[in-house]
Design a protein around this nucleic acid. Sequence first.
DNA 1: CGATAATGATACGGACCCGTAACGATCGGG
DNA 2: CCCGATCGTTACGGGTCCGTATCATTATCG
Lengths: 117, 117
Amino acid sequence: MPLEIRPSQALRLWRQVHLDLVRDGQSDLSARQTAILLTIYLELPPHTVRGLAAQLGVTKPVITRALDSMGKLGLVTRKRDEFDRRNVVIQRTVAGALAVERLADLVVERAREIGGG
Amino acid sequence: MPLEIRPSQALRLWRQVHLDLVRDGQSDLSARQTAILLTIYLELPPHTVRGLAAQLGVTKPVITRALDSMGKLGLVTRKRDEFDRRNVVIQRTVAGALAVERLADLVVERAREIGGG
DNA sequence: CGATAATGATACGGACCCGTAACGATCGGG
DNA sequence: CCCGATCGTTACGGGTCCGTATCATTATCG
């Protein structure tokens, strides 16, 4: 059951959602942070710094800093892995789940408004 | 002819495309720059700094700087309006059109891979 | 012509992010 | 027990972007 969408529709959807994000001031999240956030909330736990860095193809400090800023916003939390105390487990939060849900609704709503062009 | 998409599909699409952009290093474009680029290439000309600033709800220096960096990448060009020399008309380029087209193809391709979940 | 308005560009101080390199903490094998 | 490997974090130097305020240029209107 593939999702059918034409190039012109894709571009209008992409533009409109980005306009909404910029206008709402929610563009605090960069492309990398968005990818990290959605990976945490869509993929099965547990999530580690190293694992996220590998999935995104970036270095570990990038993940650490992204978790720092996202943690300040309350979108994620970190916890030591008690079985291997070198590891840090990234956990979801209520605020993070709400932010992800809001993004989903935004995309869905803007897609619905896209006419056939 | 609305575009039907469910929240879970929207999130997977959003994540996958962002992952691609980050991995390809094309995340040079911030959310604002993406909105500006797509506005220039989707909306009818002429485009001015002031008009773009109003559409995005940001200040004029943001547009000027975005045009600076996007100009370095060859994605847009600026030209003085000869009829009102205070204005600057933003023009499209071949490289910019190609970049937009590539983004559209990326979204379309990733949407096609999204199963019904 | 002179005053006012409008446009886009620039200066500035501050904040954020990057990649490389180094670090402390922790695990595991010899 | 110790030494190497692994994990996440931090330090550093450099770059980019932000918003406010200001600027030079140009148009408009009296």
